[in-house]
Design a protein around this nucleic acid. Structure first.
Length: 480
RNA sequence: GCCCCCAUCGUCCAGAGGCCUAGGACGCCGCCCUUUCAAGGCGGAAACGGGGAUUCGAAUUCCCCUGGGGGCACCA
């Protein structure tokens, strides 16, 4: 099996394309075949290096490695279409000489007018084949005389293209609805159909796995392939990803660029796991599974035919599952930079140890990595910012002040500053003051962290250290 | 307008004629645990779009309707 992913660098890699890449990759790795990465960069107008790099970075981040293609090379020469232009022209020319394609001199306005008319009459809107009967030699002469012409494929008529789609089953298209489409523009550049198909043939691609938006173009690709004297590949057309409103996933649904998930604190494994579930399943009731298991069980034939809505909430839940599965060191390595960025300074050695100490408690209450700073911040700032709502709701309560003062006295005289001792001391304080935990402990939490939401209190105090804990309690008492 | 694809809880998937009183996951609701927030445990509400046909029997097969999606460029 040889599959390919062929993005056009005309935009950032978005989640829909990422899913297509993933399904290609899964199919190839399952079969032990080769994965080819090609850059469909024939559109110099819209394409850019930035987008190209974004695609590469995105695939690498996801861990979807390729065996052949752009960046890594391979036996088929360049894997960038912009460097293969001559090849496409040669194919178009050969097809023309063989009578499988012909020159067309119709102008765009003429074409538009006829298309409009056909539509008004309820007929298929495609090209009407006007230039097809023209004598090839005469046409050739006209072009050499300087007349603008495109090369069109002579689609067999009457006729029909039938193929077996791996996910959809048998699909048929009557050629009445497949126009004599353009292969080569008048400026000599290839259309997508030509370039893509020639490459699939040249690169010996055996399986074309792509979005459903290309389903109705498939007859064109098969026709070109056959005209080139090659065997068409197998096709698998994936249904598209939808936004929450059921419309095709796009910019208006917010961030659809893959890199925004990376920046938003998502783990590549979680993303891959979630996206794999969109249109596919593990075969039992499991939803969380390792990549190796995925590869082992994956089968293009099991893919769901209907479009799937991309659900950020489920992705986020799954990300939380993966975060909790991280080794502590790994978790620290991934989140410490975020904490440091938030503070706008690096943590010194002692602070790093402190962070590592509190990290397990932060780790289990996060869904995205980017939540780490807000949980850890209180440990590393000189002055905590108090959440106005929490201050009002908790610190101004009648029992808050006595709890703070009592805690202050007890903690100041505590023998050893560690979680267990702190807990024992504060629990006996609760008894003494006859306060429940909520009334007696929440004020302390707000006082030392600035928020009513934080890692566990006793651990937080230990991490903060005695001096700073006492200072904050004292400061709050004063301000009250 | 023309062509193609699709159709099970709000969402993602199970279900390939009787195992379905339709199963799991996210989300939602309730309870438990609990120093907050999470996590975790337990429980709950929640779906086969409609109509025909085939069959002893249909979520599962066929047809029509409806609905949704995609495509119809000298863009990819």
């Amino acid at each position: 099996m040889r599959a390919r992913f062929a993005p056009s660098p005309t935009g950032f890699l978005h989640v829909g394309s990422a899913r297509t890449a993933l399904f290609n990759w899964l199919a190839v790795r399952h079969a032990g075949g080769e994965f080819v990465l090609r850059s469909d960069d024939t559109d110099a107008e819209r394409g850019s290096d930035e987008y190209y790099q974004d695609v590469i970075d995105g695939l690498r981040w996801l861990g979807l490695d390729w065996d052949e293609g752009v960046e890594v090379g391979g036996p088929h020469g360049s894997y960038r279409q912009s460097e293969r232009l001559a090849r496409y022209q040669d194919v178009a020319e050969a097809l023309r000489r063989a009578g499988a394609a012909y020159l067309c001199f119709c102008t765009t306005p003429e074409l538009e007018e006829r298309r409009r008319q056909a539509q008004a009459e309820g007929k298929p809107p495609g090209y009407d084949g006007r230039c097809r009967p023209l004598d090839a030699a005469e046409s050739q002469a006209r072009r050499e005389a300087g007349e603008q012409a495109v090369v069109r494929l002579a689609v067999p008529r009457p006729g029909e293209t039938v193929f077996e789609d791996i996910v959809r089953g048998e699909v048929r298209f009557d050629h009445d609805h497949v126009e004599d489409f353009v292969l080569l523009r008048s400026n000599g550049s290839p259309t997508y159909h030509l370039a893509s198909t020639v490459d699939d043939v040249d690169f010996e691609v055996s399986h074309v796995v792509r979005g459903e938006d290309l389903l109705s173009s498939t007859p064109k690709h098969i026709l070109i392939t056959v005209a080139m004297g090659a065997e068409p590949p197998s096709y698998a057309h994936l249904s598209l990803l939808m936004g929450p409103d059921g419309k095709k996933l796009s910019k208006r649904h917010g961030d659809t660029a893959l890199h925004s998930y990376r920046r938003g604190g998502y783990l590549p494994d979680a993303f891959v796991n979630y996206v794999a579930l969109l249109g596919w399943n593990f075969g039992d009731d499991e939803t969380v599974f390792a990549r190796s298991e995925m590869v082992e069980r994956f089968d293009l034939g099991d893919i769901q035919k209907n479009p799937a809505v991309f659900d950020n909430e489920k992705l986020t839940w799954m990300n939380g599952v993966y975060i909790r599965q991280l080794e502590l060191d790994d978790f620290v390595d991934r989140t410490r930079p975020l904490v440091e960025a938030d503070l706008a300074r690096p943590l010194d050695e002692a602070e790093q140890a402190t962070y590592r100490g509190i990290a397990p408690f932060i780790q289990e209450r996060m869904k995205v990595l980017t939540e780490a700073p807000e949980q850890a911040r209180f440990l590393f700032v000189d002055v905590v910012e108090y959440d106005a709502g929490a201050w009002e709701k908790i610190l101004t309560k009648p029992d808050a002040r006595s709890a703070l003062e009592s805690a202050l006295a007890r903690l100041a005289s505590l023998d050893e500053w560690q979680t267990d001792a702190i807990e024992r001391s504060l629990r006996s304080m609760l008894e003494e003051l006859e306060l429940n935990a909520r009334k007696g402990l929440q004020p302390l939490r707000v006082a030392i962290t600035g928020s009513s939401i934080s890692p566990p209190l006793f651990e937080s105090m230990e991490s903060l250290g005695r001096a700073r804990t006492l200072a904050r309690l004292e400061d709050v008492v004063k301000r009250l």
